[in-house]
Design a binder for these strands. Sequence first.
DNA 1: AATTTGCGCAGGTAAATGCTTGCATTTATA
DNA 2: TATAAATGCAAGCATTTACCTGCGCAAATT
Lengths: 139, 139
Amino acid sequence: MLAFIFASKYLHIMEIRRDVFQAIADPTRREIIRLIATQPVKINTIAERFDVTRQAISLHLKILSECGLLHIRQSGRERLCEAKLEKLIEVHDWVEQYSKLWKGRLKALKNFVEQEELQSKIIKKNKRNKINQIKKSKK
Amino acid sequence: MLAFIFASKYLHIMEIRRDVFQAIADPTRREIIRLIATQPVKINTIAERFDVTRQAISLHLKILSECGLLHIRQSGRERLCEAKLEKLIEVHDWVEQYSKLWKGRLKALKNFVEQEELQSKIIKKNKRNKINQIKKSKK
DNA sequence: AATTTGCGCAGGTAAATGCTTGCATTTATA
DNA sequence: TATAAATGCAAGCATTTACCTGCGCAAATT
């Protein structure tokens, strides 16, 4: 428990601020992942697709590489960037634990709404009966 | 196409820098989500669980709220934070499109490794036969 | 009515992020 | 061998982030 408090206090200092969640937070980096998802691509080719300098893209690639989302392979004077999509399992698993919760809730909500509808129908029916009774008694 | 280039150029200016990916990038915010995932919790109760000030936590809650991951409900002088986990669908779907790719690759890799093993066995077998032949001829 | 509790808001700081320009280095190629 | 191409590295800058302290205000509690 103490360790937990300690860890949470110094998390922003201790932790290498390069986890997968951090890496995919940036839209440019997500776009890079999309580009290299199916086949390895040269650094320059990636850079050409964006309107920022090659250096800026290089930095993004470094971040992605540092957190294990891609691997850079030297090939002559070129460098090929290959996606390591398995690293996304971390994110997948994290979301998955909550998807169970929200799916459960949606189901519960659906049941609730259906129950409400049923109740509302019964009330309406009773109301109609009462109105009919009043009408009858007026006659 | 032009629109895409334009969009990608000004993405970091145009975009409200508060998307779900950005929100879950911070470990403190992920921990907050964990705390309120199953039931609504008061702001102060959340803040007590961390070693930073209430104000810092309040800011995190604001960010989570702005991107739709939680809803703050006033209840007298208290404020209850309720998780809106459905918002994680965005992340879920994004990861899912790549999970298909990485699963496919792992399968391909498995096949490749199995093939390699088979090849290696055949080679070893051939080698063994040769050695035996040599041994035989020596005798 | 006075105090406590639960919060928001404003202003300030240090570090991180995202980008730039300029220069060095290695490897193909004319 | 000179040159072009593909890249890395370093220094600098604006913006954002993740904190902090201090203050104010309204709803409960005493």
